[in-house]
Computed example of a mutant assay.
Amino acid sequence: MPQPVSWKRRLKNFLFIDLKTVAGEPSLTTVDPRLQRQWEEKSRFFKTEDEISAAGWYDRRASYYAEFGKIICISVGGLFFDEEDKPHLKVKLLSNDIELAILEEFLEIINRYPPGELTLCAHNGKEFDFPYVCRRLMANGLVLPPALQISGKKPWEINHKDTLEQWQFGDKRHFVPLDLLAAVLNVPSRPLEWTGDHTSEVYYREHDWPRIEQYARDSMVMLVQVYLKMVGAPAVADEHIVLSD
């Protein structure tokens, strides 16, 4: 059944984003001594049945924390509709060994939108993607754009979308990975090759950019398809998904 034309208006100035993060250094031994001490202190609070050293925890979890990790890829996705109101998706991958270069390119994209009119969407974005990118922008000495000046704002004052939050229905303790949510909703998408905690291993041990970028692209397509399914919009056909330069 065709969707009303209003969908095109609702998705105007709307961007999907997804971060791929890794530990800031290949191993704990190469971390700045000041940060190394902080990580050793932090890792004491991690609970597990196995005894894992601070170095072991660094390999597993440092990518989750903006103070100890870095961004190696930001996927940006934008939807547009053709004359028959069929959705098309354009995906751009910002990937680089130099985090500053990624962030500067990301700022160029989101600063094109009128202040206060851009809506960002991510899975677990309000707990991870949005604050993480803000922290890494500040760590790299960059100014936060209007769309990400969210510190101190009340939840209802932030118009960004979060597919995890939509699925939680108010139950903040309920975490569902994007891959699982796509399966539950029977969303047409390619299964993800790994979970986020393995990205550091692929990056540092293999430095396999084609695999990382494919993982980033698959995550973005899945995110968009999940969002469209959740709001009752038609899915994007494979032939209407374009990877932008």
Rank of each mutant, 00 (worst) to 15 (best):
A147Y: 09
I98M: 10
R190S: 12
M222G: 11
P114G: 00
P210Q: 04
G152Y: 07
A182F: 02
E165Y: 09
A182D: 03
G116N: 02
R136V: 01
N111F: 04
K126Q: 12
P146M: 04
V184I: 15
K153P: 03
E206T: 11
F175L: 08
E206Y: 14
W209Q: 10
P145R: 01
E99H: 06
P191A: 06
L142S: 10
D97Q: 11
L223R: 01
Y203K: 13
R217S: 11
I212M: 06
D208Q: 06
F128P: 02
R217E: 13
L178N: 01
H198L: 14
I158P: 08
G170K: 07
L180C: 06
A147S: 15
G141S: 05
L100P: 00
D197L: 09
N186S: 14
P191H: 06
K172Q: 12
M222K: 12
K172A: 11
R211V: 04
E108V: 10
Q166R: 14
W209Y: 08
L181V: 03
H207K: 12
I98L: 13
Y215P: 01
G141H: 02
E165T: 12
L192S: 05
P146V: 03
L223M: 01
K161L: 13
W194N: 11
L148K: 08
N140E: 08
V143Y: 05
D197S: 15
K153W: 03
L137V: 00
E213R: 12
A183L: 09
V224P: 00
H207Y: 09
E104H: 01
G170V: 03
Y204F: 10
R135T: 10
Y113S: 13
I109N: 08
L103P: 07
L142Y: 00
A183P: 00
F128D: 01
P145N: 02
F106K: 05
Y132K: 03
L118M: 05
T195L: 11
P145F: 06
L120Y: 02
E99I: 11
L137P: 00
L144V: 04
R135P: 02
G125N: 10
S200M: 08
K161C: 13
W194S: 12
F128A: 04
R112V: 09
C121P: 02
L137Y: 05
L178E: 01
E201L: 11
Y132F: 15
D97S: 13
V202M: 14
L137D: 04
Y132E: 02
C121V: 09
A122N: 04
A182P: 08
D179A: 05
I158R: 09
M220D: 01
N111Q: 15
W167D: 13
